[in-house]
Design a protein around this nucleic acid. Structure first.
Length: 486
RNA sequence: GGCCAGAUGGUCGAGUGGUAAGGCAGAGGUCUGCAAAACCUUUUACAGCGGUUCAAAUCCGCUUCUGGCCUCCA
């Protein structure tokens, strides 16, 4: 408990001791979703990872302000700053207001997050709710000479910035490399440099989401919102800034540049990035068409799945891998996780009924220390889970009368399981009844069919009427028996 | 092509200098009306080649392969 916490910092590429700027307060900003379509499993993994981090920091006694934005404007489709706003495009296709798209996918995202048992962030600010802050930030960057205006758009001057600052600090690249290896994009005549990016973009007449600004009617660039909102809610400097590892080279690099240009400071002490979820070794992404929706997993309706998996199985599956490793998704891996998860939860359910002895064969304190040590080592949930399996072995052994535990150790064990299994990993028993109901009914129906076959109609009627009384109607046909809820 | 990661048993996946966690699967056993569960035991793993070191999965170099980023991405 008194051990130090170490976190891996992308800036230094090392694990560093976690020292908050203003303990016991901790500020954590995580880049949230762009709400133009459903969140897929890869997106979920990132937010589950930061949920774990949020939960553990809270356990350590920190008062965490966890800010996770909702991007509802400014995120452009396709190349650079010439594409169409993703949300506006979707709205046009569906013939609805952009904010209807935003509402639909925001609600959907929150539902999935709740189903996966992630805690809501402290603040969930939106880009459209902070247009003024973004305009002010753009003015500041212009005033300091790191941006320039062209025809109603404002661009960040990367090469000028790099003269006094290290633009590639986060991903460890030199500007020359970046310049030499950047694809030449068409239609970027307004930009002075290849790497320059938009802070404010002039809106074309047909553009749906636009706001007045000192440079004319337009909308903010994607990277700007995170700088503006982290500034507003966490200050110029805060502790942790996180997101998916794919945000490092562009989004977070630009974000740092904006903050340094405007305020002279890198906003976050620790930059933390979660690795990708892959399918057959390839990154899950919408554009590659290999993305999975959580709902497909919960329903089992996907070609590579043999069956549905519950939300807690999914959560457990993800936590069994360290957040900085890639995680490959497959039916076999899910099946293994499902069994492991059930084993863990079965043991947890046995806990209240355990009998104590005068002596104890087990030492819970050392396991507890191991649990803290695992999490203090850059939130190593796989190692934590291995310790919890050791607990489950102990619980089963005591339950079978093959091991003894005294009162004191049992209390410690209960506390440990509550703390790490429930509070930190965020796992919970699932009301299996509803999920398993169809199987149960099928089983009963089969029993009844057998009774019918042997002309035991007393039994078959008893089953049919009994089920009817508790709300299920059986229907016999040539093809077999089906049921409906009355 | 450039830059950056990674390669651990049947499988998933921890481990950054000193006897290779854990889950799933497999084998044997205990228990059991059957089955399941549970418990005990157990099996061939550090991509390859060099180097540093008393000692390397771990550090360094080269090779091979895989992935990420370089365009939007969690």
């Amino acid at each position: 408990m008194k051990q130090k916490l170490f976190v891996y910092n992308t800036l230094s590429r090392k694990k560093e001791e976690f020292i908050p700027l203003n303990a016991p307060h901790v500020g954590m900003y995580v880049c949230g979703p762009t709400v133009y379509s459903d969140a897929h499993l890869g997106n979920c993994r990132t937010y589950i990872s930061f949920d774990l981090i949020f939960r553990y920091l809270t356990l350590l006694g920190y008062k965490v302000r966890y800010v996770r934005n909702i991007t509802d404007a400014g995120h452009l489709e396709g190349d650079a700053d010439e594409g169409e706003d993703k949300i506006a495009k979707k709205a046009k296709l569906a013939q609805v207001e952009p904010m209807e798209i935003v509402q639909k996918y925001t609600v959907g995202f929150r539902d999935v997050m709740r189903i996966l048992n992630t805690l809501p962030p402290s603040i969930e600010p939106t880009a459209t709710g902070h247009i003024i802050e973004q305009i002010e930030l753009t003015k500041e960057i212009l005033a300091r000479g790191y941006a320039y205006e062209v025809n109603g758009s404002v661009y960040f001057d990367v090469e000028k910035y790099n003269k006094t600052q290290d633009y590639g600090a986060l991903n460890g690249r030199h500007l020359e490399d970046l310049l030499n290896n950047t694809r030449n994009l068409g239609g970027q005549d307004e930009k002075r440099g290849k790497l320059d990016f938009a802070l404010w973009i002039k809106a074309k007449p047909e553009h749906l989401m636009k706001w007045p600004s000192p440079w004319g009617v337009g909308f903010p660039g994607w990277h700007l919102e995170c700088s503006a909102m982290s500034n507003k809610y966490l200050g110029h400097q805060f502790d942790i800034h996180g997101g998916g590892i794919d945000l490092v080279p562009t989004h977070h690099t630009n974000e740092i540049a904006q903050n340094v240009a405007a305020c002279g400071k890198n906003p976050a002490t620790y930059w933390m990035h979660t690795n990708m979820l892959t399918v057959n070794g390839t990154k899950m992404s919408k554009s590659l068409g290999n993305s999975f929706l959580p709902e497909e997993l919960f329903s089992g309706e996907n070609d590579i799945l043999n069956k549905p998996y519950s939300p807690m199985t999914v959560r457990f599956f993800m936590l069994q891998t360290h957040y900085r490793s890639t995680l490959d998704f497959s039916n076999d891996a899910m099946e293994a996780s499902e069994k492991g998860f059930k084993r863990l939860m079965n043991a947890y359910d046995l806990l209240p009924g355990l009998k104590t002895s005068a002596q104890s064969d087990v030492d819970i304190e050392s396991i507890s220390n191991n649990c803290y040590a695992a999490m203090n080592d850059d939130f190593n949930s796989p190692v934590l889970i291995a310790e919890l399996f050791e607990c489950s072995r102990i619980i089963n052994s005591v339950h079978d009368g093959k091991a003894k535990i005294d009162e004191q150790n049992l209390e410690a064990l209960k506390k440990l399981m509550q703390t790490f299994l429930v509070d930190v990993l965020g796992l919970k028993s699932e009301a299996a009844a509803n999920d398993e109901l169809p199987n149960v009914l099928d089983f009963i129906i089969n029993l009844r069919s057998e009774a019918k076959k042997s002309q035991d109609y007393a039994t078959s009627d008893k089953i049919r009427i009994g089920l009817q009384q508790i709300g299920f109607q059986l229907k016999d046909s040539k093809e077999g028996t089906t049921w409906t809820k009355i």
